[in-house]
Structure formats: structure tokens, C-alpha cells
Amino acid sequence: MQREVIVIGGGIAGLQCAKELQEAGRNVRVIERARGVGGRLATRRFEGQPIDFGPMFLHGHAEPFLRAVKDVDGVVMQSPWPRRIQGQGTPCQPDAFAPTEQRAIIPAGMNCFAKHLASGLQVQLNTRIERITADGNCFLLRSSADEEFQCQDLVVAMALEEILGMLGTMGAVPELAPTATLLGMFSSVPSLTLLAAYPLEVPAPDWDILYPEDSPSLQLVSQDSCKRLQPRFVTLVIQARPGWSRERLEQPEEAWSTQLLQEAAQHVGEWVLHPLWTSPHRWKFARVDRGNELSRPLLTPINGNLRLGLAGDVFSPGGGVQAAWLSGSALAQRLLNEE
């Protein structure tokens, strides 16, 4: 009998894992709680203009990952944005601008990479799994709308803390005790993020991305509109530093978004205080910091014939989108080869 696979989490790791399993002839379903795929590789639209508010650009050095990126319609890999970098602050990933790294952007929005991976896959959106039970010969998954799913191979592909939350719904499973202890030694960092749109008439800055070295709150300001082919607005994405974000995670959005806008105005100009539109986003588990990564995905047999696979940005060295993709790919290969 063909083993059924369910992947919880339609981010880059989950999608790549599902894609490779399906290409190998396995029956795979992806379950995603949001109304679109991509997870943290996120793009919103303001009046039709895309704004990336997760990773600002893609970067990597692993050949298979770069080939997958190259496959996306309209992707720009030849001297892509950001060309004009301002400030001496550190990027979220210190290696992003290393000579070994290739960078890429997608003018139609970064989440097009996720949509590209998802095409041809069976993805069920708007479905939040609330409980997993390891029954004798299958995993039973129950959604918040009381829908039930069954599989023999289960992949959970999310941010680290979300994976731990998901494992927590299973109760005490002896096989998972070392996994939970291991994952408990790692953690993600948060980033409060503010998107803002302005008319084209504002004195837009002469840089693509700013990494302030001396701001208590700002990690970066991205001039997102410079990634677009025909922008109708100047758009900025402001991302806050992890420590500053952590202190304010539970505060109302208005408080921290106003502070972020004021701090950005200090660095960019007074006009930043008067946006046409803003939208705050709380990335509770934005990314993993260097030194907080595992080298490969985890695959644990349960009750003898069930297998639980874990993938995501923490399961491959370096973190970020490339790590997420590589971990999904590595997990698919383990599921196929370790039967």
C-alpha cells in the first residue's frame, strides 16, 4: 500500500519537500493555515503593487537551490536589487553579501517563489491543525474546523517554536522526547515589521536598503518600490531589531508602529511621518540567528511504522530561505531513501 504523506506548513521547506515527494510518485497533501502559500517568504499588495515584508531578497550558494530560484518567472539574478546599500549596520544574515553568495529578487513579489513551488501540488489553504494523534497505524490530524486527515508519513515544516507547539499537541510520545529536548535548545528571533506607502512625489532616498549602525530599534529600512518594474507608490518596509522587537511583542501595534515610523524618519527624512497607508506585522519567529541551526532535518519513527519528519529554516546550516529549501529537499530524500 502507498504511504500517504501530509505536510503541515506551506512555506518554502514544506513546499519543496512535498514537490520532491510528489515527483517521486508519492501521494502528498500540503495543509496551510493561511490563505496563501509562502509562510515567512511574504508579499502583500497595496493597490496592486507588491511589497515584500519577510526576506527582502533571496541569497544562496547551493547549486540546486539556485537552479530552483532561476526557474521562477521574471526572477532577477543579474546584479539584482539591492545595488545601493546604505549604512554600516549588519544585515539579518551576515553572509548575505559575501562573495560566495548569489542574490535574487522577484519583481512580481517574493511569494511568487512559493507559488511556483506549489503549482501542481495539492494544497489545502485556511486549515489550522489543532491536534495530532499517533494512532496504531496512522497519524490522525484534526483541524480547528473539525476536519480529519490521516497519513503514515507526517512532515511538520514551520518555524522552530511552532513545530514545538505542534509536537506538544501529541501528548507524551516517548520516541519524541529527545527531539523535543534537542529543539528546546534552539530558538528563533522576532522582528516587528512596518509597511508604509507614499506618493511618488516624496523625496525618495538614493539607496535601496539601509542598515543603520546606530539605531536602537531599526534593523533595516528597505525601499521596496525600487524592486518593482513600474511602481505607482514609494513603499518602505521597516524591520526592527530582535531585542527591541521582543520587548514589544505583546504591546498594541499602534505603539510600536508609531515608534518605528518616527525612528525611520530620523534616518530617512521628515516625509516618512506622513504615509498614505501603513500596515504592521508581527514576526514572532522571524528567523534563526547564526549558531542556532541544525545540520539536517529530523526524521523519527513512531510506533514502529509511522514516520515524523521535521523541516524548516533551523534544519540546515546558515538559516534563511536557502536553508528552509535545502531542509525540505533533504527531508524528502530521507523519506524516500530510508524506507
Binding site: L294, R296, L298, P317
Partner: peptide, 21 residues
């Protein structure tokens, strides 16, 4: 050092050690 810490807790498994590199 995380692998050592897992050992200290009696939790070291081949799978965890491989994942730790």
C-alpha cells in the same frame, strides 16, 4: 556542546547527533 548537554540528560541519540552536525 549541545550534543554534550543532551548526553548529560541521557538523551543522546544517533539522530540528534547527526542533526547537530
Amino acid at each position: 556542546i549541545r550534543a554534550y548537554a543532551l548526553q548529560d540528560q541521557g538523551m543522546d541519540t544517533v539522530e540528534a547527533n547527526l542533526a547537530l552536525g
